[in-house]
Computed example of a mutant assay.
Amino acid sequence: MSNHLKSIELFSGAGGLALGMAKSGFHHKMLLEFNRHAVDTLIKNHDDGQAQIKDWNIKHDDIKNISFKKYKGKISVVAGGPPCQPFSLGGKHKAFNDRRDMFPQAVRAVREARPDSFIFENVKGLLRKNFSTYFEYIILQLTYPSTTKREDEDWESHLSRLASTKGRGLKYNVVFRLLNAADYGVPQRRERVFIVGFRSDLGVEWSFPKATHSQDALLWEQWVTGEYWKRLSVSKSDRPTSAISQLASRLQNKYGLFQPKEKPWVTVREAIGDLPCPKNANIFNNHQLKEGAKSYPGHTGSPIDEPSKTLKAGDHGVPGGENMIRFNDNSVRYFTVREAARIQTFPDDYHISGAWSECMRQIGNAVPVRLAEVVAKSVYSAIAANVTF
Rank of each mutant, 00 (worst) to 15 (best):
P86N: 05
V387A: 01
P82N: 11
P260F: 03
V186S: 08
N173T: 08
F284D: 07
S245C: 04
L202N: 15
A385R: 14
G20D: 09
V174L: 08
H4C: 04
S12E: 10
S2L: 10
K23Y: 14
Y228A: 03
R342S: 08
S249Q: 03
K23M: 14
K92P: 01
L19W: 14
V186T: 08
G320H: 01
W229P: 11
D348Y: 00
T148Y: 02
T148Q: 11
S242D: 15
E322G: 14
L127D: 07
V39D: 01
K377H: 06
H60E: 15
A293Q: 03
D274P: 04
K70I: 13
W265D: 13
F131P: 11
S249G: 13
R150S: 12
N35S: 14
K92L: 12
A18W: 07
Q222T: 07
I272D: 11
D305R: 03
N365G: 13
Q52F: 15
H316S: 15
Q105V: 00
L247K: 09
K6N: 10
R250H: 09
F389R: 00
V387E: 02
G16S: 05
L162F: 07
V196E: 05
N45I: 03
L170C: 12
H351Q: 12
N282S: 02
T225R: 07
H93N: 14
I43A: 05
G301H: 01
H213W: 01
G167E: 05
S12N: 11
A182I: 08
F120C: 01
A113L: 11
S117T: 06
A366L: 09
H37S: 01
V107K: 08
G80W: 04
A38C: 13
V268R: 05
L251P: 00
P276H: 00
A113N: 11
G364W: 11
T148R: 12
R239I: 05
V367L: 09
A109Q: 14
D329N: 14
T133L: 05
F346M: 07
G320S: 03
D62G: 09
A163Q: 14
A281Y: 08
Q52G: 15
V332A: 01
K6I: 02
F103R: 02
L140D: 06
W155C: 00
I138W: 05
L311W: 09
L127K: 07
N328M: 13
I283Y: 13
T336E: 07
A385H: 12
E291Y: 10
R269A: 13
R99G: 03
F194T: 04
F327Q: 06
S12Q: 07
N3Y: 00
V174D: 05
R189E: 06
T133M: 11
D40E: 15
R192Q: 10
D238Y: 07
P209E: 11
Q222S: 07
H28R: 09
W265N: 11
D349N: 13
F389Q: 05
P240V: 04
F208D: 13
D305Y: 10
F103L: 13
H316N: 14
W265S: 03
